[in-house]
Computed example of a mutant assay.
Amino acid sequence: MTLIQDERAPYVQVADTLRAEIAAGEHLPGAKLPSVKKLAERFGIADMTVQSGLRVLREEGLIVSSPGRGTFVRSDVDPSAVGAAASQGGDDMSAQVQLLTSQVQGLTARVEELERRVTASSVPD
């Protein structure tokens, strides 16, 4: 699959395509994405352009990269919230708010679990 010539920069097209795939469940939370090299081959573009597209998704909080391990969909990503953002064009303010709300809810649940563990471990026997 090569990128379609449109007004969007190629790296934006990469980010939009991968975001839509995450929303569709093609890349589940915690899943490893294909390597930069494989994505570059798939889209018919340079590695640096793919890296720029991945940077956009990292900045959005959808993926994380681990040197030597690869790039992964964040385990706390809610694909339904990503789907709403992707279907509304990504730049739409309400879609961004919905995505951030989902991420905050996930982080809140994680903090509550950590607080529960700390409280439970600090109770004397």
Rank of each mutant, 00 (worst) to 15 (best):
S94C: 03
A86R: 01
P79Q: 07
Q88I: 09
D92E: 05
S94L: 14
L114D: 01
V77E: 01
P79A: 02
Q96Y: 00
L107G: 12
L99Q: 01
D92K: 03
Q105R: 15
V111K: 09
A86Y: 01
L100R: 13
T101M: 12
A109I: 09
A85P: 02
M93W: 12
V104F: 11
Q98M: 13
E113K: 14
L114C: 04
L107H: 12
A81I: 05
A84F: 13
Q96W: 00
A86Q: 00
G90E: 08
D92R: 03
A81H: 02
A85D: 05
S87M: 15
V77C: 05
D78I: 02
L99R: 06
L114S: 07
T108K: 11
V97L: 10
V77G: 03
L100A: 12
Q105G: 11
E113P: 00
G90Q: 10
V111T: 07
Q105N: 15
E115M: 07
D78N: 11
Q88T: 13
P79H: 03
G106A: 15
Q105Y: 08
V97M: 05
V97A: 01
V111Q: 09
Q105I: 10
Q96V: 03
L107P: 00
G90D: 03
D91Q: 14
L99W: 05
G106C: 06
P79F: 07
L114V: 07
Q105M: 14
